[in-house]
Design a binder for these strands. Structure first.
Lengths: 248, 248
DNA sequence: GACGACTAGTCGTCTAGACAAATTTCGGAC
DNA sequence: GTCCGAAATTTGTCTAGACGACTAGTCGTC
């Protein structure tokens, strides 16, 4: 790493632009210019500290920003790396994870995180069209593309109709397959609500993503061909790795 | 503010959970519990520092997290405040800002930030169906509901067909009205791409939102009834104030 | 009463230093 | 050669202190 640092020279102090932002912009530009390719390792904090002539905390503030923007990935004990490319994820009435991923020439994979049965609280019961307090099966599932976590979904099924789901999912973590085995060969997505926020620590952990990087949160309702509600799903996408696509 | 701080007592040190996260969780819980109503002012950093018995920087780290999650709003020189409620914004083939806002019983408003004409770069030209380098009208528009900024849109129109747009928009910042005056009485949205990231300083400024809070970014293409591309729009929504709704 | 300067309160940035936690490296034992 | 453990490297958290920037009020002058 004896490569000379690109010029624009020293930072402007007392000019109305904070030092950490100048550092952020400098690195952002160099990444955009391709100085380091996707996945490549960036200089360590110590090196950047020396290069810019500031305190380590100031460099860290800039890195936090870059990480939150999805441009770099920071790993404790390893270093910082330029982020990789993003995946298109189509949202539509017939959204299916595996198809979606395969269409982009990647290998889909599903991991069941946990399954539980619990009473439905008010708003969930209403969405599912059951009485409040009736049992609901809650399944948490992590979906990956080429081994990289993409989305964490929490599915809620009425237990009365889908009591066999836990065992089915344990054997094969495909929602579509499990529903088919329960007599629902097809289902359609009705509404999707989308928002963005920062992940909880557990979400960040499962999605292998920084806590400072947003997740796209979608809430959807699926119904069977007869119009009965099959499940309510809340999914959290690693915003840096996915782009949702809605076709009208 | 002589009100006693709620119990759970002192923070657990050296227990594997960082102090700032414990503080964040404590405040998050109290906000959820309704200790302070929406819009209410939170204790100052100095007060929180005293209450939790930590350094001010540690309290600040917790506040950053809460702000990024959209739970509080921090204003320099004034204090921190509990965030207010969110708006539903429907995305569909006939998405129109004003209708969308009025449906929620709020008052829509549009402000033209700037209009310019510039040559189309490659990917934009392709999306618009024109040659690279041909002139494009770029209009930046801030849309508000009840006086609060909701979305910042950057619209790109082929100048050959919509040369009158700048003057029209200057007189009335409604896109729909301006297009109607140019002979496009109706238009439909084709695809929408959705991602999330942190805002640039300018976006944060215009949306009156913190830099630590994500924006939902949508990219859409609108066509006229004959199928010709009318415009390409990139919109940035204040994620804490809006929820996108997709109906399938 | 209107305006402006001043001041206190509050958040924003930067520096400095220490230690913890996670990862990688490397040498020695076998 | 392989495995284990210590050491080095690198990022994460916390404390401490200083000063800048912005806000809102106070008080004096005109």
């Amino acid at each position: 790493m004896t490569e000379a640092a690109p010029q624009p020279g020293p930072l402007a102090r007392r000019e109305g632009v904070s030092l950490w932002r100048q550092i952020q912009l400098a690195l952002e530009g160099e990444i955009a210019a391709g100085r380091w390719g996707p996945g490549a390792r960036l200089p360590t904090e110590a090196e950047l500290t020396a290069r810019f002539g500031v305190n380590r905390h100031t460099v860290r503030r800039a890195m936090e920003e870059l990480e939150a923007r999805g441009l770099v990935r920071v790993e404790q004990g390893r270093g910082s790396f330029v982020a990789e490319d993003v995946l298109d994820y189509r949202l539509g009435p017939r959204t299916r994870f595996s198809e979606n991923i395969r269409r982009q020439n990647r290998e889909p994979e599903g991991r069941l995180i946990r399954v539980a049965e619990m009473p439905a609280e008010a708003s969930l019961a209403e969405a599912l069209g059951i009485r409040r307090g009736r049992p609901v099966i809650v399944a948490e599932r992590l979906a990956l593309a080429n081994g990289r976590p993409v989305v964490l979904g929490t599915h809620h099924f009425p237990a009365a109709r889908f009591g066999r789901l836990p065992e089915l999912l344990a054997a094969n973590p495909s929602i579509t397959a499990a529903l088919a085995a329960c007599g629902v060969p097809d289902y359609r997505r009705q509404v999707t609500r989308i928002t963005a926020r920062l992940p909880t620590p557990e979400e960040a952990e499962l999605l292998q993503q920084s806590r400072n990087r947003p997740v796209l949160v979608t809430e959807a309702v699926n119904t069977d061909p007869q119009g009965a509600v099959v499940d309510v799903t809340i999914a959290r996408y690693a915003a840096g790795r996915v782009q949702l696509v809605v076709e009208s």
